[in-house]
């Protein structure tokens, strides 16, 4: 088995094991979606208006959860040094890490997103589009978030620092994803927003690992 395959299995085991991955992300997501009506009020009118948008907000927040451990743990126990010294390029290592991050949190969340949106009053007919945008958007969140996680390796502020760095960069996917859904809900053409969301996510899937690898090398130097 190639080195990257082993790495993929290791990362997946780490992300899923010990209550990680969906075991953590789904309850958090459910909590955010529950607090929302408590804060807004149980009136279905305003809730329905913000249902799809707020399910996207919850997605963006939830995707920040496990970013802190993405590189920091490997940095602390020295595994990142070994990965950097190994045969596989560090860019590929970062790519695998973010891909697993997406598989372990982004993908399960994408399946939960329409449930939360429907509970808040979104139309059930939007379910396929919500799942598709959440899958694509989660990919973008993982790879932009990974840049923030790699940059804050070795800092004393961890998770909050990542959030401050990364959340402004989440503006375009949130706009495109939530925009596509709200356009579909209004009976308009949703393909523009969906295509732009895909463009953004794939752009950072391609480019993000290079920034992450540069940041890792800097932290390890």
């Amino acid at each position: 088995m190639s080195g990257l395959g082993v790495l993929f299995r290791r990362e997946l085991a780490l992300a899923w094991g010990r209550g990680g991955g969906p075991m953590l992300a789904l309850p958090f997501y459910a909590c955010v979606a529950t607090l929302l009506p408590l804060a807004i009020g149980a009136d279905t009118g305003p809730l329905k208006a913000i249902a799809t948008g707020s399910s996207w907000l919850a997605l963006a927040l939830t995707s920040l959860l496990s970013l802190e451990r993405l590189f920091e743990r490997d940095f602390e126990d020295g595994a990142l040094d070994l990965l950097a010294l190994g045969d596989e390029p560090l860019e590929a290592v970062c790519f695998i890490k973010c891909l697993v991050q997406w598989l372990a949190t982004g993908a399960p969340l994408a399946l939960a997103a329409p449930i939360a949106a429907m509970a808040l009053g979104a139309s059930p007919g939007l379910t396929p589009l919500i799942i598709a945008t959440a899958l694509l958007g989660g990919l973008g969140f993982s790879f932009t978030g990974g840049i923030g996680a790699a940059l804050s390796i070795g800092s004393r502020r961890g998770g909050v620092l990542i959030a401050v760095i990364v959340l402004p960069l989440f503006a375009p996917p949130v706009i495109f994803g939530a925009g596509a859904i709200s356009q579909a809900a209004a009976g308009l053409d949703w393909r523009a927003g969906f295509a732009l969301l895909g463009g953004y996510s794939l752009f950072f899937t391609a480019l993000g690992p290079f920034f992450m690898a540069a940041a890792c090398r800097n932290a390890l130097s």
């Binding site: 940059l151 004393r156 401050v164 800097n218 932290a219 130097s221």
Partner: peptide, 21 residues
């Protein structure tokens, strides 16, 4: 965010390079 990152890393050279990225 840039300033927060710069302030959060102890080693000045590393902080600057991270912030540059």
């Amino acid at each position: 965010g840039y300033m927060a990152l710069l302030a959060a890393i102890d080693d000045e050279t590393k902080a600057t390079r991270a912030a540059n990225i």
